[in-house]
């Protein structure tokens, strides 16, 4: 696979992995016991670390100084009012912001200890390892099969493609529903099925992190619960970060929750992280009044 994305900086700290390639083996070495919703274990290794992340769109300071660790094989939820920068922060994790010309990130985001914004890190490779699922299901205007095979083809996947497509669709809990119509257009699927197809597509490139920005907000309650159930399954293999406006959803699916808020000063609305804790604490005994007001619905 032509996916080596080494940093080219001379004086690197040799105690840390230098490339995403080097970083990967540490995954296998840090297997940890599985825990389920609400009571995460600190034994899960930190896979992503945001340190003092500031986000700008041109002169506009959109997000102020966010620091938080994301642990592997957990679901981390981002919640907060509209405009507090949840999407901006989640997009910064796989360098999706690079695609917005005015967007700029300061601070560091490390993945397995590698700074994702270091010179020489290939954003395309970053996005392969850290996949993204969006609010609106956005399948390509292609067949179901080709939607899933698309990413692997681009990265010149040399294994059995049929097998990979089946495995990805199975993991996304869609296989049984589509196995007899793989050559049908993806557009013929329901919204919930399309979203699971997008998850299958994200999984097909073997990422280890899945970012989901309001993945269920366009779905009906049953399709939503399916996605939630799927997240529960997926976190046994993947690290998941989810943005959601549905607080019950954050409470149901996540192990840890980050609450963001917006400060208005000099006409600018700047987002910041207010509280980050295990989900059970956030929803039973948050430490900040702002969190309490938001999750109990007393904001106005």
């Amino acid at each position: 696979m032509a996916d080596r994305i080494g940093t080219t900086v001379d004086s690197v700290d040799h105690t840390r992995p230098e490339t995403l390639e080097d970083a990967s083996p540490s995954l296998a070495a840090t297997r940890s016991p599985r825990v389920t919703g609400g009571t995460p274990s600190d034994e899960h290794a930190v896979i992503l670390e945001l340190s003092d992340v500031n986000a700008y769109y041109g002169d506009f300071h959109a997000v102020d100084s966010v620091s938080l660790p994301i642990r592997e094989k957990e679901v981390t939820a981002f919640i907060g009012p509209s405009g507090c920068g949840k999407s901006t922060v989640i997009r910064s994790i796989n360098r999706m912001n690079d695609l917005i010309p005015t967007a700029r990130i300061e601070g560091a985001i490390t993945y397995h200890g590698v700074d994702l914004y270091a010179p020489g890190v290939d954003p395309v490779e970053v996005r392969r390892r850290i996949g993204m699922v969006f609010q609106k299901p956005n399948p390509f205007p292609k067949s179901i099969y080709d939607n899933v095979a698309f990413g692997p083809k681009i990265s010149k996947y040399s294994g059995d493609m049929d097998e990979l497509v089946e495995r990805s669709l199975t993991r996304a809990a869609l296989w049984d529903e589509v196995k007899d119509k793989l050559s049908d257009s993806a557009y013929a699927l329901s919204g919930g099925q399309q979203q699971r197809l997008c998850i299958a597509r994200a999984i097909a490139t073997s990422p280890d992190v899945l970012l989901m920005d309001e993945p269920a907000s366009a779905l009906d309650p049953i399709a939503t619960l399916r996605i939630e159930e799927l997240m529960y399954e997926l976190k046994q293999e993947y690290t998941i970060v989810i943005v959601t406006h549905n607080m019950q959803q954050a409470a149901r699916v996540s192990d840890r929750t980050a609450f963001f808020s917006v400060d208005v000063k000099e006409g600018q609305r700047t987002g910041r992280l207010v509280e980050f804790a295990d989900t059970a604490t956030i929803f039973t005994n948050p430490q900040h009044d702002e969190t309490e007001d938001y999750i109990t619905g007393r904001f106005g």
Binding site: M247, Q248, F283, T284, N285, P286, T291, E292, I295, T296
Partner: peptide
């Protein structure tokens, strides 16, 4: 109401 936090407590 699906209360949380101090309301739930």
């Amino acid at each position: 109401q699906q209360p949380v936090a101090s309301d739930l407590r």
